[in-house]
Design a protein around this nucleic acid. Sequence first.
DNA 1: GTCTATAGCAGGATAGAC
DNA 2: GTCTATCCTGCTATAGAC
Lengths: 191, 191
Amino acid sequence: MPYPAKLHPGTILSAARQLLEDGGPEALSMRPLAERLGVQPSSLYRHYADRAALLSALETEATLELLATVQAHAAQATPAASLHAVGLAYLAYARQHPHLYGLLLAPKEPYMATPGPGKDLWNAVLALVDAVTGQPDDTAATVAVWAYLHGFVVLERSGQFGLSGPRGGFERGLQALIEGLGRKGGDAGPG
Amino acid sequence: MPYPAKLHPGTILSAARQLLEDGGPEALSMRPLAERLGVQPSSLYRHYADRAALLSALETEATLELLATVQAHAAQATPAASLHAVGLAYLAYARQHPHLYGLLLAPKEPYMATPGPGKDLWNAVLALVDAVTGQPDDTAATVAVWAYLHGFVVLERSGQFGLSGPRGGFERGLQALIEGLGRKGGDAGPG
DNA sequence: GTCTATAGCAGGATAGAC
DNA sequence: GTCTATCCTGCTATAGAC
């Protein structure tokens, strides 16, 4: 009777995504996933080799979405404005999908190293930063921007900002960073 | 014959710390910990209520160490130089003790909210940032600096910078951030 | 204060029938 | 392609003897 197969990779993945988004990585386990799909846990292995494969697929999904978000905000009047808008959009995505976003920075090989959506995302941000600093392939500045964005996301998620937290602080720092990176120098010593 | 008790809270904690530092949080489990101490797992519960108590004690230890590191580098010729030096010291500590550092930002109540070593650490950085921006209690700017520092640590640990990664990028961004925050304005719009 | 013994839970994954 | 049945591993934590 199970002629129209109950399961398709897409169905599984979307259920898995819901589990992850609702309850974090630990909530995405094979048994609850199967239950939500009305299926036995072992059936899932016909479609995904193991749990890691599911997570990997979700990570790709998230990367593509974040890339699309970035691209959608990258065209502003000035390079600084573009980077500013993209920063806000990045934060917004991470806030909307915290657990999905969390997959993006699990220990792995660098995005910039291997082709794929991750590298596309890196390149998109790199181009924006280059436009601001005026230097081609400005890896160091891109890393700085990325560190700031990611750090803010993590701090906020860890609860450090509390309920009435200084969320306006995000733009203050982003602005300062863009300004500071934009100046030709970078040669002012610490002293 | 076990007159000199085998276990003391300090002994346990230092063994626990080693497990954590060597293998991350998952490596700190009660059975291996007991084995390393030549003891049965159940014996540990005489000294620490549960595993969470161990982690909490280690977190306090790490916070105090990081605070000491910050204080040791805070006295430079100028406020900017102090913040710069502290930033480097912060990164160095996180690199030296990645898993211990990792305990510091597990989801919890904000450091700035409740008295304790965490709040002391926050206040120490806050004072440095205030001196740079010229504003008292400049929470927003402090958050920005902290986000940058933490974000860089996490990105680096996640392997994003590879082996020959742009570690010099850290100072570039830190410098830019300090400069940008130091300017009176912050009022320059994104456009 | 340490021991033995064990309860209890959750998780990933596989073998083989249908 | 889904099922039943099960294995295996890992973990925290407790009860009660000594």
